[in-house]
């Protein structure tokens, strides 16, 4: 990895206010993201795994400042993103883009496919009126769609084709970094592989760095160089994807991996008890301890520090005698 990572996230937190009653009195906070730190190198894909309520989507949005982080630092190419003013933020959007989960909701139904793809170019003033048709055609080719799709309506397209359009939009500004928020979860099984292959191709062809958010660990392992696992807004484990999947060091990662159904093997599964606790009042100490099969009384005492257990492989768990 280079000396300066492309993206450096330090102690990122996002709290949402809970307001109640007639006068919207503040009654508490939801800790959507709590003290999360990670780096993403140039052309590196970091997988962000977690279940619903883990804060993975909020992390993705915060990194791009689509939601305002409550605290923490986000440095992109050495510049502090949280301190950007409006024009700087607009410039930042040329370097960092996002692909959303639902390709049906993320394209304006009143726009043609061509207009949807051209929108970033127009907003950013990256192409003159006469250049736009050529640029759109080039972008459609990049995502393996026929050039005549520019005139089509989004409603004429299948889910997979729409997701290609969304990717083409994100590529229009020539970004170096993309947040891909569950980009294949809404697609049919036979279509998912097409989009995964496209993302893989873009990564190697354009040298894109990516934050790949998913609940599907198999897809994530396939596409990511490293994997970060989050639970209740906290980082549990981060490391090279091969290592995290083969030899997870955190009990939650172990359970998560064992829960992934696999068509060709019947592995022994660890079934976690209960539901994810409410992020309004998370457990003290280690947030996972209430469901952890290895929990000790000490786990409730303090929030476990993130420690390096192997070069580049970190975990937030006090026990070293397991896994």
């Amino acid at each position: 990895m280079t000396a300066e990572p492309l993206l450096q996230v330090r102690r990122l937190s996002k709290l949402y206010d809970i307001r109640q009653g007639l006068f919207s009195r503040l009654v508490g906070h939801v800790r959507a993201v709590d003290d999360v730190s990670f780096d993403i190198g140039t052309s590196e894909v970091l997988g962000l795994a977690g279940e619903s309520g883990s804060g993975k989507t909020t992390i993705g949005r915060s990194v791009l400042r689509l939601v305002e982080p409550t605290s923490g630092s986000i440095r992109f190419e050495g510049k502090e993103v949280t301190a950007f003013d409006r024009p700087q933020l607009r410039d930042f959007r040329r370097s960092a883009q996002i692909v959303f989960q639902d390709p049906y909701a993320s394209i304006d139904p009143t726009m043609s496919v061509g207009d949807a793809i051209a929108e970033p170019l127009r907003v950013q003033g990256l192409a003159s009126r006469s250049e736009i048709p050529d640029r759109v055609e080039k972008l459609l080719t990049d995502v393996a769609l026929p050039a005549d799709f520019a005139r089509r309506r989004p409603s004429d397209l299948s889910g997979g084709q729409r997701q290609r359009v969304v990717i083409a939009r994100a590529l229009a500004v020539g970004p170096r970094f993309i947040v891909a928020d569950e980009p294949v979860s809404a697609l049919d099984v036979s279509i998912q592989a097409q989009i995964i292959s496209l993302l893989e191709d873009l990564k190697s062809r354009l040298g894109l760095a990516m934050l790949f958010i998913s609940h599907d660990l198999a897809v994530m392992e396939y596409l990511s160089d490293r994997i970060a696992v989050v639970y209740l807004g906290k980082l549990m484990e981060i490391g090279p994807s091969r290592d995290v999947v083969a030899t997870p060091k955190h009990p939650y990662t172990e359970a998560l991996i064992s829960a992934v159904p696999d068509p060709s093997s019947r592995r022994k599964r660890i079934i976690l008890k209960g539901d994810v606790p409410s992020p309004v009042s998370p457990p003290s100490g280690c947030v996972f301890r209430t469901r952890c099969p290895y929990a000790l009384p000490d786990c409730a005492a303090a929030v476990p520090a993130t420690r390096e257990v192997r070069p580049g492989h970190f975990k937030a768990c006090i026990r070293d005698d397991i896994l």
Partner: peptide, 15 residues
């Protein structure tokens, strides 16, 4: 077309 967990390195083939 499905990646397999723990099968890093094996290519998937899209339909």
């Amino acid at each position: 077309s499905r990646p397999r967990l723990g099968g890093k390195g094996t290519k998937i083939e899209a339909i």
